[in-house]
């Protein structure tokens, strides 16, 4: 199992960089992960999406469908890719500390 160092703290991650210890997530983790993908300042909409993902996961135990995510946040898929370089699953969910998407991705 790999680990990454973010601002002096070490976190267990899988080979794609998804957090393996969800309890350790903080906003700083999200910021540091975003930085690794070249996004240095997270704006309000970034946080709206990530907070929505975290809340939804806490309540339902799953990540929302893309349609649900765009409808509830008002951020359409095109904007989603502008905010999160690798899209809602590989960037937004990863930065928000959700488990890695599975299935025939």
């Amino acid at each position: 199992m790999a680990s990454i160092n973010l601002h002096g703290n070490s976190y267990e991650v899988d080979e794609d960089g998804f957090l393996q210890e969800p309890d350790k997530w903080t906003e700083d983790v999200a910021k540091a992960m975003a930085e690794m993908e070249g996004i240095t300042d997270l704006n309000e909409t970034h946080w709206k999406v990530m907070n929505y993902l975290r809340d939804y996961f806490k309540q339902n135990g799953i990540a929302p469908m893309v349609r649900k995510l765009t409808k509830d946040t008002g951020v359409n898929l095109k904007e989603m890719y502008e905010l999160f370089p690798q899209g809602p699953a590989n960037s937004a969910c990863k930065w928000a500390g959700l488990p890695k998407p599975t299935g025939c991705v």
């Binding site: 899988d14 957090l19 393996q20 969800p22 135990g61 799953i62 990540a63 488990p99 599975t102």
Partner: peptide, 11 residues
């Protein structure tokens, strides 16, 4: 040990 951090249980 790993299930909850790697999987969505309802799925």
């Amino acid at each position: 040990e790993k299930l909850a951090s790697t999987c969505e249980i309802p799925s």
